[in-house]
Simulated assay, not measured.
Amino acid sequence: MKAAQCPSYGPPEIVRLADVSPPALAAGQVRVRVGAAAVNFPDVLLVAGEYQIRAEPPFVPGSEFAGVVEEVADDVSGVRVGDRVCGTGLVGAFAELAVASARSLSPVPDGVEDRVAAAFGVAHRTAYHALHTVARLRAGQELVVLGAGGGVGLAAVQLGALAGARVTAVASSPRKLEAAEAEGAEVLIDHRHGGSLRAALKEALPAGADVVLDPVGGDLAEPALRSVRWGGRFVSIGFAAGIPRLPLNLVLLKGVNVTGFQLRDLAAHLPEEFTANEARLRELFAAGTVRPYIGAEFALADTAAALRCVADGKAIGKVVVRVAD
């Protein structure tokens, strides 16, 4: 089969199109003919050998896909050959065939294209649980979204506005802020060209933010933390710009609740709430109420370019790899 293979650790350009053997099907797994896959920042880190979990080269990167079930293991029930599904895994999505645990798959709603289904899961699930399960966002509250032009950021803007919050989008370019405005952001801050982020947030939110969602880290984290009102919530979900060093005196003086968030932790520690919120998000997706913003698409042969787009922070929303044109 054709696949985008990472032969050794390195920059995105190390990934190349190759003929590889289809992955073996193990107990509890399903084989899917992939129609489309989506790029996430951890894919870049895995290729570089810098992620918290390592995949040993050579491997096929890609953690999010949608397609048609082609084969199921003997012990699998509830998923049948011919079903349209989307799913996630650590690696393997940038290929014509992928295998995944049957429990990690979800049905694709009727009328939804593979490219849309592939781009939906990771970003919207991360944003939804971060906002509702962790931050407890409520209607009328002030929400600040850092990295608001990225996949998770735009999903958070969309879901925050849907929840009735007033959303302040912080992004690095006018184009990203235009996308955030289209998804419901009311306040737009260009942190790269608009001067001091701390001053801009203070002007926009004189009473402070109720919730800050941070998928970026780096130099943006501290001024965003300073913008949180007493008793507010700061949710850290990633470090695309580097791991920040936050002064704990701010946490003490402001009484801020600073929380780290990983999707798999919620499934393990809050299973009932996790399952209920997953069901609610699937309902919104099936109804067409929420949709991912797809900013760029690449052919399977151009997977390296898709990874580079995400690595350089140029992506607006989700980046999709078309596997089956």
Rank of each mutant, 00 (worst) to 15 (best):
P247T: 05
A161P: 12
Q141V: 03
R84M: 10
A38D: 08
T289C: 01
R322T: 09
E273M: 13
G164K: 01
V39T: 04
L300N: 04
A296F: 03
L197W: 09
F285A: 09
R31I: 00
A37D: 01
G151K: 05
R198F: 05
A163S: 11
S101I: 09
L137Y: 14
H191R: 06
V251A: 08
A93E: 02
A135K: 05
N249C: 08
I294T: 08
V134G: 03
Y293W: 15
R103W: 13
R264F: 03
D325R: 13
T259L: 15
E71P: 00
R192T: 13
T88Y: 11
G242M: 13
V68D: 07
W230V: 06
L154C: 10
A209L: 13
S106Q: 11
L250M: 11
V323G: 04
R115S: 15
A73E: 03
G194S: 10
V20Q: 05
L146S: 03
A102L: 06
Y293A: 14
P107A: 15
G10P: 04
F94W: 01
C86L: 15
P12M: 11
L177A: 02
S21D: 13
V157L: 13
G242I: 12
E181F: 08
V144Q: 04
E142D: 11
V72P: 02
A27G: 12
L17I: 11
R280L: 05
F285N: 06
L17Q: 06
G111H: 12
V212Y: 12
E273Y: 05
D325V: 07
A18H: 01
H193A: 15
E56R: 06
A306D: 05
D265S: 07
V112M: 15
A98D: 11
G295N: 11
A38W: 06
A209C: 09
